[in-house]
Design a protein around this nucleic acid. Structure first.
Lengths: 247, 247
DNA sequence: ACAAAACCGGATAGGTCGATCCGATTGATA
DNA sequence: TATCAATCGGATCGACCTATCCGGTTTTGT
């Protein structure tokens, strides 16, 4: 009956972890949840350790890489994400369900900087998380089909548009942070109105499926958000061609 | 007539720089233009130096901080940006001018990763650049007024919506990079359709002016983008993670 | 041609990050 | 209670970043 006993019928998840180890594991996840939500995935492992009240090594012992910690932290959030699609599919009104999904998912991005990044990044090594993502994607395709059939959604809407929506929303919540915590609502409302049927005009083609996948792979590295003072400027150059250059 | 002579009536800009120094200064700016455009503001000073064929110290001698280099590099890009507003105001058709401005500005973001961030960040120390930004903003307010008066633009459109648009577009171009270089066009087209009058539904309130300013201040630090896509293939371990970036 | 000032760039300082090492500690078992 | 493996956490590694230092080189004015 003692928890942690090596009995086969014991509690699953934590397989034979010493009691203090299991306690720390939960502390770490709880701390990481808060830190990633507040500072995004760019938060350092050290800051998570500090928040959890454990040593840095303790984190890496339980989660050999940062990516694994991220996967552990966001596992249940991805569940909620997949659930949101299921809830939307259960809605009797296809368009209402579609809009509800969008608002729920974007609200999740706004409430958790880390999750905003997760939705626009793929983690090939975190199979469980990617599985949820695919489940959600398949549900979204059906959701879109229903909404189109019911006439609420414009016919040229593509599943990839939801990915683009999340990228755009991530840009807004990342840039605004807590300075303007509700700005995303207006952006999302504008998007939703542009999704409504009938289409006001034709759209440029959607990006290819695999291009978007590569884009999400590429995003992996880092996420701004946190660092402080040393601000640097940014710049751009324009040099080449493209679009309307001024002279 | 020799350039660089200490004559008072000499060429302005470069005040008495030795010929080789002036040559390097231009090389540095040209290199930084390309590097920032390709890799975003997260690109390191070392990579700029390498591209320019000069030493790191040479860059910091001419531009004491990275922010100053950025300001120097983007000065003309901000001019083009302000020009785009002027061009839009000169358009006989207010709505056409409004849409043209949006497409031009967003195209500039897509063509230059660094500029995408510049548009969503303020640089209090770079006064010239901030002046251009304000000029552009004032022009945008007039542009919006004209477009509303002509009936093309929905009445509840707010100038801050253009800032949000740029934040959203930055999110898309940052996430997509060169993997899906045209994805932004579809997003912008959707936005434009949602801007068109008549409004399909009311919108959540706009963020407060000063909140958006604080958000743009806060955005400063870093920008991902840096690391190359396929890279890291090498040995095992560490593949992922960040690093460069960002920052 | 020549000296002095201006300039160059590699090495280095000092910071952060992810990740690892190792001596000290603690929990589980008998 | 005694034992020992499992665990802990601070120190440390290596890589990268911005920024500075300093000995060698180049431009400039006479």
């Amino acid at each position: 009956m003692n928890p942690g006993r090596p009995q086969p019928s014991d509690d699953i998840a934590a397989q034979s972890l010493r009691s203090d180890a299991e306690r720390n594991r939960e502390r770490i996840i709880a701390a990481a949840r808060g830190v990633f939500a507040r500072d995004g995935l760019g938060a350092s492992m050290a800051s998570v350790a500090r928040e959890a009240g454990v040593g840095i090594a303790t984190i890496f012992r339980r989660f050999p890489t940062k990516e694994e910690l991220v996967a552990a932290v966001f596992a249940d959030r991805m569940d909620s994400y997949a659930d949101a699609v299921a809830v939307a599919l259960a809605d009797a009104d296809p368009w209402h369900g579609f809009v509800g999904y969008i608002e729920t998912a974007c609200a999740m991005q706004a409430a958790d900087q880390g999750f905003a990044d997760v939705l626009t990044t793929t983690f090939p090594t975190a199979k469980a998380m990617e599985k949820r993502r695919e489940e959600a994607y398949e549900g979204m395709v059906r959701l879109i089909g229903r909404a189109k059939a019911a006439g609420g959604l414009r016919e040229d809407f593509d599943p990839s548009d939801l990915v683009l929506l999340h990228m755009a929303n991530a840009g807004v919540v990342n840039a605004c942070g807590d300075a303007a915590p509700d700005a995303w609502r207006r952006v999302v409302a504008l998007f939703v109105q542009s999704f409504a049927a009938p289409a006001r005009a034709t759209l440029p083609a959607s990006p290819a499926h695999e291009d978007l996948y590569r884009a999400m792979l590429r995003a992996g590295p880092e996420v701004p958000g946190a660092t402080a003072p040393g601000r640097t400027g940014k710049s751009s150059k324009v040099a080449t061609d493209k679009a309307g250059e001024a002279d």
